[in-house]
Design a protein around this nucleic acid. Structure first.
Length: 286
DNA sequence: ATCCTATCCTGTAGGC
DNA sequence: TGCCTACAGGATAGGA
């Protein structure tokens, strides 16, 4: 499901609704996610308050009062769901249920089980394997064209694959990679090492703009993603190319194309995102 | 080092 | 209706 805007939406809601609450009990499903959930998790959380919830790329970080953290990733289909009524409606694929002392509950649901729940001891987060491998988060550290160009120097992978690589920029996924490249008017098939500075400048600017606009609309619900309150995000209305194969480009009317790169769909406008169509305008602007 | 492929898992949509 | 295939917002180990 989730890319940076969806995870940030959930983070903001968690920050508003679970911070300050104290864990009374944790129940685990016993199923393995991306890795097994530590059997010590219930003991580690019990009677601890949640001090804050932060985010790095697509990772959520629950900060406990004793300094340990619960690291969480939603994978493709993970959801954190909050409830405060009398009782929970039964749901399939719930892998962790956290009951707070005040009677409210938080559940982690993940049908495909590509998600992650990992307990990290105090002071070890920066050295955690998953976190240490991440590049800068584009909200905390906005990317710049010259830094991206320097990183991409001589790389032969496609610019689409470059944007998806979490060790270069942390948080962009398959939907927003297509949207960013469309708005920057760059063909997703081009090699990262061959993108010019003015194009990297456009990619950097559109990355910031697209992610922030999507956050403002609570993310994109393509299928599985829901907010903490089990509601869909509304950025889907704003998508210019993703999942719009054969539909007309909103700028020029050319049918949007779907191609496969690294076994994943990429959507783009073959006219707007061609060098021929952009050479003149770009020189003028550039 | 860089890159590409296959793999983990379930649910759903579409063709026949 | 059922059966089949293709595809889905991710990360990563392992081989070329």
């Amino acid at each position: 499901m989730p890319e940076l805007p969806e995870v940030e939406t959930v983070r903001r809601m968690l920050q508003a609704h679970v911070v300050g609450r104290t864990v009374r009990a944790v129940r685990l499903s016993g199923h393995k996610l991306r890795e097994p959930i530590s059997s010590g998790l219930p003991r580690a959380l019990k009677n601890r308050a949640i001090r804050g919830v932060s985010r790095l790329g697509k990772f959520l970080i629950f900060e406990l009062e004793d300094g340990a953290v619960l690291l969480s990733h939603l994978g493709m289909s993970g959801r954190w769901l909050f409830s405060e009524g009398e009782r929970d409606e039964p749901l399939p694929h719930v892998h962790a249920r956290i009951a707070f002392a005040d009677g409210t509950r938080l559940r982690f649901q993940d049908p495909r089980r590509f998600g992650l729940l990992r307990l990290v001891p105090e002071g070890r987060l920066a050295r955690d394997k998953a976190i240490a491998a991440l590049g800068p988060d584009p909200i905390a550290t906005p990317p710049t064209g010259d830094k991206l160009q320097a990183q991409a120097q001589d790389l032969k992978l496609s610019v689409k694959a470059f944007l998806l690589d979490q060790k270069r920029i942390a948080g962009i996924g398959n939907i927003y990679a297509s949207e960013i490249l469309h708005r920057a008017r760059v063909d997703p098939r081009r090699k990262a090492g061959a993108i010019r500075l003015e194009e990297w400048n456009a990619i950097a600017a559109e990355t910031i703009a697209v992610l922030n606009e999507a956050i403002a609309r609570f993310g994109t619900t393509f299928s599985a993603y829901r907010t903490l309150w089990n509601e869909p995000g509304t950025y889907g209305d704003q998508l210019l190319v993703y999942d719009r194969a054969r539909e007309p480009c909103r700028t020029c009317g050319t049918p949007i194309r779907r191609i496969v790169q690294g076994q994943r769909s990429t959507f783009f406008c073959p006219h707007c995102q061609s060098r021929g169509a952009n050479a003149k305008t770009r020189r003028k602007r550039g």
